[in-house]
Design a protein around this nucleic acid. Structure first.
Lengths: 147, 147
DNA sequence: GCTTGACCTCAAGTTAGCTTGAGGTTGCAT
DNA sequence: ATGCAACCTCAAGCTAACTTGAGGTCAAGC
């Protein structure tokens, strides 16, 4: 009931739906850690399923891996995260999500104004207000837009 | 009052806030077209300012260049787009935006359920429903998530 | 004991959306 | 007519988030 709790990478992949290569990639990036067998094979904790699941959800919400790493870093080290630890994380993500929705909603309102005036013009249209130009979309976008 | 209306690339860059290299890149991708002087320099129409502005806005809303290209393709060819042409486009983008907001909002609702149950578990949590896993975030994300 | 599938590392390739650099030409002002 | 900023092309580089491939090892069943 001890070694039984250690999963090889393929198992973890099966359980989470991630590709084996993706999990190795995440380990490389420090998002997840693994023990090694004598034969140098990775063995993961059961709780890593949840960790990876969290990564998937957070990505789905548009967070980048580095942001996710930051979130995960708030989990307690040394011990397996409890349910309430995860709830805390979820709430933190919820906040980020709220912000994203708000931003999109505000942008939509401006777009509506723009449809009204039909301008799409740099000088007049609110959508071009520099101050407001940060991180609106979820995507990568050109530097300029994300400045 | 004719040649006067043709802008060199630097002008266009200044007016839109885009980098010259970005504009050339967009031309390469077919998002915008230019005439050439005898000396092989690009000359753009005034209406291209608006075209580029549209690209910026659409990107801000999380659309990819290929999606934007598709939108732009609905503009009339041969003549300079009218105000009402642009309004039509704006409305089309508004629809996409609505969808994006809805998706995020639904996801938020599920996240709330998840906070409630605290599971984050592949078997039980709605967030993991495969059928629902398509294109939620704005970002690129792993293939798997966007399938 | 040997085959087979899961595992290992490390390097290079992929897509998106650009930027940077090298090396060369144009065009406007003086 | 000359200087210099702005323009040109083409190739390579960059970040994110992975995948693919080459070449090799481990472990479990027959």
């Amino acid at each position: 009931m001890d070694k039984n709790d250690l999963l090889p990478i393929g198992e973890l992949a099966r359980r989470t739906g991630l590709a084996v290569s993706a999990i190795r990639f995440y380990e490389d990036k420090g998002l997840i850690q693994a023990m090694r067998t004598m034969g140098n094979q990775r063995r993961f904790l059961r709780s890593d399923i949840r960790r990876l699941s969290f990564i998937l959800i957070a990505q789905k919400l548009g967070l980048g891996l580095s942001e996710i790493e930051a979130e995960l870093a708030t989990l307690p080290q040394g011990r397996t995260p409890t349910l309430s630890d995860w709830q805390k994380l979820s709430r933190s993500v919820r906040v980020a999500l709220d912000a994203k929705i708000q931003l999109l909603t505000r942008t939509r309102a401006k777009l509506d104004e723009c449809i009204g005036c039909g301008c799409l013009s740099l000088q007049r249209c609110q959508l071009y207000n520099r101050d407001d130009r940060a991180g609106a979309g979820g995507g990568t976008g050109p530097r300029y837009v994300l400045d």
